[in-house]
Design a protein around this nucleic acid. Structure first.
Lengths: 213, 213
DNA sequence: TATAAATAACTGACCAGTCAGATATTTATG
DNA sequence: CATAAATATCTGACTGGTCAGTTATTTATA
């Protein structure tokens, strides 16, 4: 193999290994995935993998980090810049649809769930720094809208979970059955209907009259 | 160990092994779980486990079967006996809340997701005979109600997925973080709000005026 | 040629499944 | 009723194979 001598070349190599790791972890689960196969998929040998990552588990941690942090920023941005809660919901569901259809998130979710109790510390951090943060952002938007009388909901922070739930559902469906043509789902339509139901379910009576399409 | 000579005693022994298997599969994942530990947890030796099940995988298959079939019957019953779709939704969400809070379903879901690609055949069957059947039952109820003009929805079979989504979300949450007191969720309130949002999101304008509590 | 990167053979630990022998329970017989 | 033979259940040491991580050696390149 051609050698990576510069820092950029090394970063590229790390990325190739991370990509290969996601493929293998997804296809076999963390425990069953072989470091030999990850390295081979990246066009390298097992020994080389250990030059770039301390252990299989370290590789896993870095994989999570590299796949989640960009999306978190986007969630915060939506929460901060939406003029109304109903608007934020449309944007959240649109982003969710995009994530589930085109990103690595569904495959990561599957791996995370499958090997969660092997890494209690990692999972706790993931929950606190990713899930609770996303739920918190959505919950706050709903809470503010509720106090302005813009929407009618029970506990906004519980409701945030209902906003998110279809992301997990369709992400997992996609990851598990996406390969089978018989199990295809029109995700844009699904998230469209989700947004419609939420809007209609939350909007106040007076908004109701001039209903949406 | 006292010996199981009668058929009933053997059935009981199978059940003890199935219970132990769920515990171990859940705690370590299918691949990482040791048959030795399953047997030990059941108060038996590894050799005995293999008198009752052909292989680790056969044990897994029987576990799925034993945990899903009772719930399926209940879903069909709700679909068949509910006077209206709005009523059926209340009953579905109530049953879902019950399942997530008190049954083994969340732990089974976690194991199934984690080791799905190890058993493509089992997973396909599970999708077709459990998931599609539940989605079909709910979808049909919605479809009938829509054609009666009782509710307003887009594609009823897509909407069925939105009805189910919080079951997966909270089941997985429960399985992964249920042990941590900081991550507790009021599931009854969650499913209550879910039912409320769905009802309000689907009901026709004329029903709207006399709104629910 | 010096040195950093890459390799592949190696080690030690682990585990599914097997099987020969041990033991609990039932059944036949005096 | 006693006990020995028969039977089915149970056990755990063993085998064959796997794999994470290490290291001695080779090789690219500045």
């Amino acid at each position: 193999m051609k050698r990576a001598r510069t820092e950029e070349a090394k970063d590229a190599r790390r990325q190739v290994l991370l990509d290969a790791a996601l493929d293998e972890f997804f296809e076999r689960g963390f425990t069953a995935a072989r470091t030999h196969d990850i390295a081979e998929r990246a066009g390298l040998s097992k020994g080389t993998l250990y030059l770039y990552f301390d252990s299989k588990e370290a590789l896993f941690s870095e994989l999570i980090e590299s796949l989640t942090s960009p999306n978190l920023a986007r969630i915060d941005e939506i929460a901060a810049t939406s003029p109304s809660a109903l608007d934020a919901i449309d944007r959240f569901t649109g982003f969710a649809s995009h994530l589930v259809r085109t990103s690595d998130l569904p495959r990561l979710m599957k791996v995370l769930i499958g090997d969660s109790q092997h890494f209690p510390e990692t999972m706790k951090r993931y929950r606190e720094e990713v899930l609770e943060r996303v739920l918190g952002a959505i919950g706050s938007v709903l809470e503010a809208a509720k106090s302005r009388g813009e929407i009618v909901v029970g506990d906004p922070h519980l409701t945030a979970r209902l906003v998110i739930a279809p992301v997990l559902f369709s992400g997992i469906w996609q990851a598990m059955f996406g390969a089978d043509p018989k199990a295809q789902v029109d995700l844009e339509a699904l998230f469209g209907e989700h947004a419609r139901l939420l809007r209609r379910g939350m909007e106040t009576a007076d908004v109701r009259d001039g209903d949406h399409a």
